[in-house]
């Protein structure tokens, strides 16, 4: 079974790829826009990649909360039905 840490590692790589940084540069609470030069296009890109990877659909309204890694993990886990 995939555990939480494996899932976080995988998701961290995905988020880092979108933000064009190395996975270890991405902290749990670093703000995508303030700390990593993110913008609305990258936010939608992130949403799209998560949807495709995990075969889920996340409403675009959720983007407002998906501002750091912790929040992205929580939203993704919620829609994917991961038990933490």
């Amino acid at each position: 079974m995939t555990n939480v840490e494996d899932r976080k590692t995988e998701l961290r790589e995905l988020v880092a790829e979108v933000l064009e940084i190395e996975p270890d540069e991405l902290t749990d609470h670093g703000d995508f826009v303030e700390d990593y030069d993110g913008d609305s296009l990258r936010a939608i890109e992130l949403l799209a990649r998560i949807e495709r990877k995990y075969k889920i659909e996340i409403p675009q309204q959720e983007l407002a909360t998906m501002r750091d890694f912790d929040a992205v993990y929580a939203v993704t886990a919620g829609y994917a039905g991961w038990r933490s």
Binding site: V18, L41, R42, I44, E45, A48, R49, E51, R52
Partner: peptide, 11 residues
């Protein structure tokens, strides 16, 4: 080829 036709890559 995607599950739904608009599941394209926005970036």
């Amino acid at each position: 080829t995607q599950d739904r036709p608009h599941m394209v890559n926005p970036g």
